[in-house]
Design a binder for these strands. Structure first.
Lengths: 115, 115
DNA sequence: GCCTCCTAACTTGTAAAACAATATAGCTAT
DNA sequence: ATAGCTATATTGTTTTACAAGTTAGGAGGC
């Protein structure tokens, strides 16, 4: 079950992260909490920090270190103009995939009650 | 674009393959055509055959070689009882992921016309 | 002082998945 | 024969997610 979720996570995580960062400037630790609030299973540190670095490397987000009043410094990320363009592309591609899957699933369900 | 699709494909491909096999006994070559008909980009041979072997190894499908009236032999696959159970689990997990993404995307769209 | 806990970012090594490219092989038509 | 379509399978590479571990700051308890 959790393994299945891991597989389904692939490919959608970056998009989900970018969607959250697009509405709110935040740092990795809080991003992880937001993902959980959005229904995703806990994402490990070893997943989220490399993913953030990749998004930054590609120019979709930029990070900035800021001191914390309590605890270690935080790296706040915000989305760039390029990131917004990529985000729209992601949403379109996701929608297409969603419709494709929906079509297959609907047909599957239909065969179990009245053809 | 095609690269983005590749990433989104991850995790959903097995489910899509199983959905198609559940409605129709077929072999890899035709499965690939069906996937395209369902809107997925072309899936390479190096993806589909190992994926079929994995599904069989896990007991979700079984394959059987049959002679072809024209051309080389074909390996026909059909879904097993175990495969049907896994398929229902996949559909539930997919639906959950879909709703999670939907929630994030809706919120994103809302911020561009009437808050 | 020392230990534990919570926050916070990052690294390392491993496993899974998809791809391109390649190999093999049967049949058809030129 | 050789080119083209069908058909399965393997190899090597890249990407992604994870577990586990490292480093470090601040708070509280003993």
């Amino acid at each position: 079950m959790s393994k299945l979720n891991t597989q389904l996570l692939k490919g959608t995580l970056e998009g989900a992260m970018l969607l959250i960062i697009s509405r709110e400037e935040l740092y990795g630790y809080v991003l992880n909490q937001r993902l959980q609030e959005s229904g995703f299973d806990t994402v490990s540190d070893g997943t989220i920090y490399p993913a953030l670095q990749k998004l930054q490397r590609e120019g979709y987000i930029v990070g900035e270190m800021r001191k914390s009043p309590e605890g270690p410094a935080r790296k706040y990320f915000k989305i760039t103009a390029e990131g917004r363009i990529y985000l729209q592309l992601f949403i379109e591609t996701w929608s297409r995939l969603k419709q494709n899957m929906e079509g297959l699933i609907d047909e599957n369900q239909r065969r179990y009650w009245g053809k």
